[in-house]
Design a protein around this nucleic acid. Structure first.
Lengths: 124, 124
DNA sequence: AACACACTTGAACAATTACTCATATGTTTT
DNA sequence: AAAACATATGAGTAATTGTTCAAGTGTGTT
């Protein structure tokens, strides 16, 4: 993305909404927390990764099986697994030549479910 | 992102993992559902939008107040509000010159909370 | 040792994206 | 009607990202 910043002129309704803005500012979580939260959701924001996570929620799988399941190259899957691992969403275990991946914890499913609730509401 | 596709050669462990892959494939939701889910999380995957959503969870606000709160231009905020509106996450209401935005429903907070749980687990 | 297999990694490229800037729209005030 | 304000929108741009391709690492087999 690009750069942020710059001094912003406040609109004329300043006086009117001053209190609201101050109240909201007080209650906002730390900048860093919100950034981390965005980073986490960014990881969920790709259909390949969503599919991988969904698959792993069903069963531990090796890289080549995930690639086969999703009809993608091992390389592409491996790159995405790296992203998922860095986000702390999956873990791996080597068994000879094969590396098995599985979900790191059960939060993934819960995050999915909340998303699905929104989607199903939407399509009404 | 680039394009997907291509015929993928299955790895040699075919026979061994065939059953698992088939079982997982059966249980996977529709392609479109997973795509929509990724699209939804993509919207959450930007810290500006996360901040806007968080602010609106505290209080209905007009564009210029959000811009002031986040120290960004009205234009930038307006562009992001458009994205949020298209995703069905926020709604707007005009009052004279001013347009007030608010959350469309209460799912937003719940999706946040799940994300925060993951983050706090992570930092242990 | 040489080879094959499962996976990882780095560079390159196309597609996407978040912002800026300039301009347009809609509303109120004069 | 003209001017001012709040917001929206389109084009342009720099940064980011997901995939491909080629080459690398690690493990088992011959």
């Amino acid at each position: 993305m690009a750069k942020k910043i710059q001094p912003i002129e406040r609109c004329d309704s300043d006086v009117i909404h001053e209190e609201i803005v101050n109240k909201v500012r007080e209650k906002m979580p730390q900048e860093e927390t919100l950034y981390d939260l965005a980073e986490l959701f960014k990881v969920f924001g790709d259909s390949t990764r969503i599919k991988i996570l969904w698959a792993l929620d069903e069963s531990e799988m090796c890289v080549c099986d995930i690639a086969f399941l999703l009809n993608m190259t091992q390389s592409a899957i491996s790159h995405q697994l790296r992203v998922l691992k860095q986000a702390g969403l999956v873990k791996s275990r080597r068994e000879g030549k094969i590396v098995f991946y599985s979900l790191e914890d059960e939060h993934v499913k819960q995050i999915f479910d909340q998303g699905l609730i929104h989607i199903s509401e939407e399509s009404k």
